[in-house]
Amino acid sequence: MGDFLQLVRNENMKIYKRSRSWIMLAILIASALLISIMWLSFGGRDTSMWEVISTESMILFVLLTIFSVVIAAASVAEEFTSGTIKLLLIRPWSRNKVLLSKYISILLFGLLQAAALFLSTLLINWICFGIYSSLDETQQGLLFPGGSNPFAYMLMYYGMKLISLVVTVTLAFMISTIFRSGGLAIGLSLFLLLGVNNFVLLLGFLDYKWIDYLLFMHLDLTKYIGATSLEDGSNLWFSLGILGAYYIIFVALTWYVFNKRDVAA
């Protein structure tokens, strides 16, 4: 049959030919710039660039996740609301592959944002604070546990964050496919992500076994950098296992529903 990469190219075209995707990327980079400039004007040049990078990454990854969820939610739902799904599906491609091409293009968009964020914070803060201003011992231990060098730490930080991002985006993609409503998918994913995430801290104090199996107890993997087991009993492999299980369920449900559905309206 045909070339599957062409399908991914199509989906990419549908993302990057819209100005909103570029506006999102611009906002992300502009925010990094803004924080650095504010830091510079209030705190002076006396800070380490790594301290600023770490703070910016923490804040802006929330923004990045929101943007990725928006794109993921739009991908399938918009095809349904605009009716273009009909013309998309009557081609010599199975629905599985059409959906896969969409999913890949969404993941690529998330990856592109992460790369843009990483490189822009690195560059901006290098210019603003200089590469040589290093941390003293106590700061180093506080900001970058595990004693690794800051660059290696940030790479690991992004790696952990990307794993959570994939799971979150997959959740939004699933809601978007099942309910065919972009608004619902965005709203529900972000509610679960931001709202429940805070609520979950409270839940953590309760002593029920099932709480350990909630998705939202495991979305923050960055706490495992430097130590795969924590004092509260959680450990990296258990968290990854839970995330993996949810991921498989999300993917299976999404593909099942998309394949089964009668396309009406």
């Binding site: 075209m13 549908k14 030919k17 819209r18 605009s82 009716g83 273009t84 009909k86 013309l87 009557i90």
Partner: peptide, 15 residues
């Protein structure tokens, strides 16, 4: 072997 328009010809408006 099939080419079709089902109901309205809905296209990607932003393209």
């Amino acid at each position: 072997y099939v080419g079709a328009i089902v109901e309205n010809p809905e296209m990607y408006k932003y393209l």
